[in-house]
């Protein structure tokens, strides 16, 4: 009986695999999210293999060929005011922009997830203390605080992104705490306690998986915000320092020649816009495919 055999095989699939399979089945239908993922993969890959794709050394100046239009003199996307190749610099700047965004998000996760879990699960006084601190941090406008810190510690992208990460952390605390609170109410947590499952395993097996979906979405959205923050700070000259460049600092540099050489601002601007958009679209797509509404038919 072929039907039974099929079912039998389905039953032998490992649970992890079928959970992933279900996610992919839904995610594959999200065309915009797939395009966004593709774009991000392209950007990341290009940053990694930048030396192979570059047409010029990134810092090489050619004062005899400044402000060349795209396509001229072998400059694919033109050259800047010091005769550096915009295409090559954009490749290398992408590295810095991505790493900076990743750094801020990593700091935010590191500082946000565990306190959120603890606050949500422990409740009472622990929760109050953690949440008051969180509220305090949330009072600061991110960019202003970052500017203040950089003013004190000296302009450096690492400092700036660390501060951005600290300021993003409360979002993660609140998100994780909120999810934990709603999960903790569920009978299956009490069921797990009644079984005698140790607390750490209750958190690992029941709480974390149920918190993961909103967390992944939030990571994607936070990456977009971190990237914008990096661009803003670098545009203000408070982020990456010359001769290195990020997309934000390229705009800052090219900004003075907007009329004469618009490509200096348009291309990095386009890269920032597309990448930030991609993170946002990916976040939405993830939310829709990780969502639990289908599981909660009742």
């Amino acid at each position: 009986m072929s039907a039974a055999t099929l079912d039998e095989r389905e039953a032998l699939e490992t649970p992890e695999l079928s959970a992933k399979a279900r996610f992919w089945r839904r995610f594959r239908r999200q065309v915009p999210a797939l395009l966004a993922l593709g774009w991000l993969a392209l950007v990341v890959l290009a940053s990694i293999i930048a030396p192979l794709l570059a047409t010029h050394p990134p810092l090489e100046q050619d004062l005899g060929a400044v402000l060349r239009a795209p396509g001229q003199d072998g400059h694919l996307l033109g050259s800047d005011d010091l005769g550096r190749d915009v295409y090559t610099r954009a490749l290398y700047a992408g590295r810095i922009s991505l790493v900076a965004a990743a750094q801020a998000v990593a700091v935010a996760i590191a500082l946000g997830v565990v306190p959120g879990l603890v606050a949500g699960y422990a409740g009472r006084r622990v929760d109050s203390v953690i949440m008051r601190i969180t509220d305090g941090v949330m009072c600061f406008p991110p960019l202003i605080l970052a500017i203040a810190f950089v003013g004190v510690l000296g302009p450096s992208l690492t400092n700036a992104m660390f501060v951005i990460g600290v300021i993003f952390a409360p979002r993660f605390v609140r998100l994780v705490r909120g999810s934990v609170l709603s999960v903790r109410q569920e009978t299956f947590i009490e069921a797990s306690r009644s079984i005698g499952t140790p607390t750490h395993r209750v958190i690992r097996r029941h709480v974390v998986p149920n918190v993961l979906s909103p967390l992944i979405v939030q990571i994607s959205l936070a990456a977009a915000m971190a990237m914008l923050a990096e661009a803003s700070l670098s545009f203000l000259g408070l982020g990456v320092q010359p001769p290195d460049a990020s997309w934000g600092s390229m705009i800052e540099r090219g900004f003075r020649y907007t009329a004469a050489a618009p490509w200096l601002t348009v291309f990095p601007g386009l890269l920032i816009a597309l990448t930030v958009l991609a993170f946002n679209v990916l976040g939405d797509g993830l939310r829709d495919s990780l969502g639990r509404e289908e599981r909660r038919a009742a």
Binding site: T187, F188, T197, R205, H206, N210
Partner: peptide, 29 residues
């Protein structure tokens, strides 16, 4: 000593396949 709860919709973790739910006491004890 074990318990069976009123609401069968919330007493099983929606993110877990049935095997994992039933195996929880086995894995613990």
């Amino acid at each position: 000593m074990q318990m069976v709860f009123q609401d069968p919709y919330s007493s099983l973790d929606p993110a877990m396949v049935v095997a994992e739910s039933i195996a929880e006491p086995l894995d613990t004890h």
